[in-house]
Nucleic acid binder design. Structure first.
Lengths: 154, 154
DNA sequence: GCCTGACCTCAAGTTTAGTTGAGGAATAGT
DNA sequence: ACTATTCCTCAACTAAACTTGAGGTCAGGC
């Protein structure tokens, strides 16, 4: 059994290799509650194979602009005790997809408005639709970056 | 002349109101080279009206995931001495639009792959197309977040 | 049995993008 | 002239998301 293909649990190093995440990042994610590995007799972390998928999800969501805290909230929808099954993931993915669709639409809208606005020479970008798309306060300069369509709550 | 509609230059407070950015953020942007206001006799900043547009651009680009440093690079394409004209902005906007299009395409691609992958139950997300779209190393966990399609250079 | 490499904890450092506050000067309105 | 804003600088603080380092333990191959 060279290579241990059939192993049920993964060390942090193995998980790191599978996901591409650094070991320190995985430990950090554990601290933030994104994964909950068990421990072996010697106190070393042992991850479930399903954590590969869990961390993949984390990476995807991060690229989409979600913060660790927000992702933790999403992942909280997954079952606690047992490994998540296909249905669990599907549910998560479908909500996610909806958000992704919305974000894409927003981005397209944005691009179109950019076309009509920055390149128009109207010299009134300040009053243009770009910053008051829907009578909302638009961007706030407060705090670190929010991605498009993101809105700090609280 | 109530309201001073015809004034040529803006104080930092006026610029703040026009853009929605905080005064401290504008000062910070100056420090990072995104704007280069002049000073009046008393040492106070005086901004060109075109800086409204400049900062609007900064805000848009930021929402799209660009860092301040990257935005500074983009803005460096604008002329130094004179106020940028419509052509200058058009050039900037058209490159920007190209990038935006690419990003939207990537996001759509991503969404489609997400559909086929996270919800598929194949249990092999780890080897799926999501992380090796084009034989590139995919995501690196190194350093603070990169947005989709972003690639740390250097 | 030993040694190397992987793992452990905990504290401190890093980067990005700002905000907050102290202490003081300039401007605007009356 | 007086006073309330607004502005100035500079230093320090914040938050997110990690990384790095010190000092020490565990596991597996020979």
């Amino acid at each position: 059994m060279i290579g241990g293909e059939v192993e049920r649990e993964l060390t942090i190093g193995a998980l790191s290799q599978r996901t591409g995440l650094s070991v320190s990042a995985i430990r950090f994610y554990e601290e933030r509650g994104l994964v909950r590995p068990g421990r072996n007799a010697g106190g070393q972390r042992r991850f479930a194979r399903s954590d590969i998928r869990r961390l993949s999800f984390v990476m995807i969501a991060q690229q989409l602009g979600y913060t660790i805290a927000e992702i933790a909230t999403r992942l909280a929808e997954l079952p606690e005790g047992r490994a998540p099954n296909v249905r669990d993931w599907e549910r998560l993915a479908s909500r996610f997809r909806t958000e992704l669709d919305a974000r894409i639409a927003l981005m397209q809208d944005f691009r179109d408005r950019l076309d009509g606005c920055i390149g128009c020479g109207c010299l009134s970008l300040e009053r243009c639709t770009l910053y008051n798309p829907d009578d909302e306060a638009g961007l706030k300069g407060a705090g670190p970056r929010y991605l498009m369509g993101e809105r700090p709550r609280g």
